[in-house]
Design a protein around this nucleic acid. Sequence first.
DNA 1: CGGCAATGTGTTTTT
DNA 2: CACATTGCCG
Length: 693
Amino acid sequence: MNLEGLNEVQKKAVTKTEGPLLVLAGAGSGKTRVLTTRIAYMIKELGIDPYNILAITFTNKAAKEMKERIINLIGPSAYEMQISTFHSFGLSIIKENYEKLEYKKNFTIFDSDDSLSVVKKIIKEMNLDPKQYNPRGIKSKISSAKNELITPEEYEKFVTNEYEELVYKVYKSYQKKLKVNNSFDFDDLLIMPIKLFNENKEVLKNYQERFNYVLIDEYQDTNEAQYILTKMISAKYKNICVVGDENQSIYSFRGSNYRNILNFEKDYANSEVIMLEENYRSTKNILEAANAVIKNNKQRKDKKLWTRQDEGVKIKYKRLVDEKDEAFFVKAKIKSLLEDGVTRNNIAILYRTNAQSRNIEEVLLAENIPYKVVGGFYFYQRKEIKDLIAYLKLIHNSNDDISLQRIINVPKRKIGLKTIQKIQSRANDLNSSLFDSIESGKELEFKKIINDIIAKKPKLSITELVEEVLDKSGMRQELKNEKTLDAEIRIENLEEFKSITKSFEERYGTIMLDEFLEEISLVADIEEYKDKRDVVTLMTVHSAKGLEFDYVFVIGLEETIFPHKNSLMDNEQLEEERRLCYVAITRAKKELFLLNAKRRRIFGMDTYSPQSRFIEEIGDEFLESLNSENDVSISNARNIDSSIEYKIGDNVTHITFGEGIVVAINKSILSIAFPHPYGVKSIMKGHKSIRKE
DNA sequence: CGGCAATGTGTTTTT
DNA sequence: CACATTGCCG
């Protein structure tokens, strides 16, 4: 096993395999390399069975990457290893033990929207005004409680006011509903294994024996449930290695607690601590800028990253007129980088909120610069896709009342509120699911459709099953009848869904419905199923954690955006924004551009914000301002050939997005439907990026 | 029951 | 601005 090329500290982190180990790994300190080498070392040098190793990462992407890198190091035996996110690890335990949890095999997983629907429904049933009691707020309270491992019974004890009393009632009923629906929400994927282990010590023992080597990445982002789960699994052998950096803790809104990492030494006796402080990623300027920002946080261990690298060029800062100008600046800069021979894969644009991607997309689109948006909710969030998935969920688990209610009248079957109330009350009387309680009326026809598909299911592939649903449900026909552009796009999207199922089948062979539903509920990011292309990357700073790029643009550095307005009042939250900024800066290897806009349209309203405080915190030493007194907008240049006429239905080819169909024309703007995952894009008539067939 | 217009409400961040 | 929800009419 070749450990050359690792520094002394890294080598130690690789070879100290027994007992508790805390690796404090600063940004860019070669953490992933250490982790993968460590696992390879354990298997190859020490002969540890990969089956006995559990590695937990924070995102599916990280899990996938880690697995690939280990396979490169040691070959296919790495497939024996469990490398997954906390949530998919939890799910795998649930799958092996659903009976002990008193669930049926065909359980489903509720996504955040499903959970919200349940809460809304409960509030309605309690005859409360959802305006007065915001369902989102209540849902988030419930989720926090669950992640703190507080049961409804325990929650009741802490109730101090009317609102908490209400949350308690909703929480209790929420849990009951999940159970009746034979379903788990995201939080359950962590909690249920803990419950299982508490009630079945021998089950826990089996997992402890199996996973006698445990590795946890991004430990600073673990919440209470994840913390306890980790502790339980590793309690027997205590061969636990956690890796993290409290300066990069950015998920407290999800209950994560960076104190878990600070307390590690107290939690595990005889633990060893290794600090990786040499940064191999960024230039001195970038690294020092990051240090300058983070030192403003009071709550942190004092540690400082250093690098042997050159100073590099100063960070560029530019304040622009508005968000369009900002996007144009990014585009212009990217173009010149590309002309200098930089490849698109080495460029990223980072932002605080998902909504900010839009302006950038429009400009890149018009300029034929291929890009991908990572993590956007894009596809799976579309109505028609969610409807289709609801059909699949109901077919899989007929107890899923939430899915049933979503689609019982999709397409329109003249089943309205009255009918649903009727079914509901019969279901209550019979103590059955909505689906089982149906025995007459229009709804019986719906039931028949579902039952027919269920009967055919064993003989069908997922793609065929989807086809069957689109066909027999009447969804496709209804959209076809509409003959609107909107409907056409929806049909396109549904067809596109089949290309996902197909790529699944090509990749994994025959896949069962439950596996498929599982996958799409846990891996929301469609980019994961696509081949790597040479494109510019757009994503939130949160999604960028763990990644690196030669050239990084951070946009929207304004007070109220970054730091976000909701965080300005609370110092704890402000410090988290600052850590987020630290993450953003440290993504860059060679050059960093910081941008903001004087004026920005938010909710259709013009808003004016001063520059982000983080700009000043970096200071002139590392920062070069590109602002001058007489700045003018640069966003008026356009390249259009107005002589080309278009009509709806025209086939066009876009250099980046391939073949598309014109689905709408609004003055000089064309709406063109492109294949998945691009969807419908707006492009100027006659723009040089498109060619009429 | 469906359709349409009026009204209102919201965006941090993600498994 | 974009969308979801509500209220009213046929």
